[in-house]
């Protein structure tokens, strides 16, 4: 059975790109358009991997990532951050939030800055879920 990969991204073109790459490589893509829908889909479908944008309507990828990684039933799902936000900024935000929320959240499994070539994306996915 194909592995399920959830795409959480508000950009039509990015979703189309990811969808095509995933289907061509025999993964089953699932789609969410924003942070809230992303969270609902994760809880409902328990995907094998999540590809997560950061800057989105209705909840950023940063908050969703933190929710995922602090939920015992979901924290083992690997996450590929796929975003225009730089890794440096992302890590700084995590540091501040760790202090605010008094709890350290692990780094994302893989961090890809947009845009990437299909090969790079597939290599990242395969590295996490085969």
């Amino acid at each position: 059975m194909n592995k399920k990969v959830l795409i959480v991204d508000d950009d039509d073109d990015v979703r189309t790109f990811l969808l095509t790459v995933l289907e061509e490589n025999n993964y089953t893509p699932l789609i969410a358009h924003d942070g809230i829908e992303g969270k609902d889909m994760i809880e409902k479908h328990k995907p094998d991997l999540v590809i997560l944008d950061v800057l989105m309507p209705r909840g950023s990828g940063i908050q969703l990532f933190r929710k995922l990684k602090t939920d015992d039933s979901l924290k083992k799902i690997p996450v590929i951050m796929f975003t225009g936000i730089s890794l440096k900024s992302f890590l700084r935000s995590q540091k501040v939030l760790d202090e605010f929320q008094n709890g350290k959240v692990p780094k994302p499994d893989i961090y890809l800055e947009k845009p990437v070539e299909p090969e790079e994306l597939i290599e990242a996915i395969q590295k996490k879920i085969g």
């Binding site: 909840g59 940063i62 900024s89 202090e99």
Partner: peptide, 11 residues
Amino acid sequence: LFEMGMEVGAY
């Protein structure tokens, strides 16, 4: 804003 620990969204 993220670096200040704020939440941000965009349309």
